[in-house]
Amino acid sequence: MKLTEKDVRYVANLANLSLTEDEVGHMVHDLGGILELMDQLAGIDTEDLSPMAQVLYATGETATLRPDVERAPIGNDLAVANAPVSGAGYYKVPRVIER
């Protein structure tokens, strides 16, 4: 499938990714080549197969569950310690709702 600049900008917008003009040009070329490789899957007969979302092997039934025991959380101060902008124990972001 041929990818256009318009497609690249559309996907970049979905991915919340700003791209420079140069990057858009490179993406058209690079993604086009890789998608061509990916298109080879289309011809494969997978009629009798279910999608494999996880690696499966025999294991105990409750392997994904842990005992329901309280654990102390890391707390607000540590949680926001890496935030670029924070205050009063919260993350701060640009205003979203206009008064």
Partner: peptide, 11 residues
């Protein structure tokens, strides 16, 4: 793409 790839993964 995605669902197809997951089926090929099973293969």
């Amino acid at each position: 793409y995605y669902v197809k790839a997951q089926k090929v993964r099973a293969m």
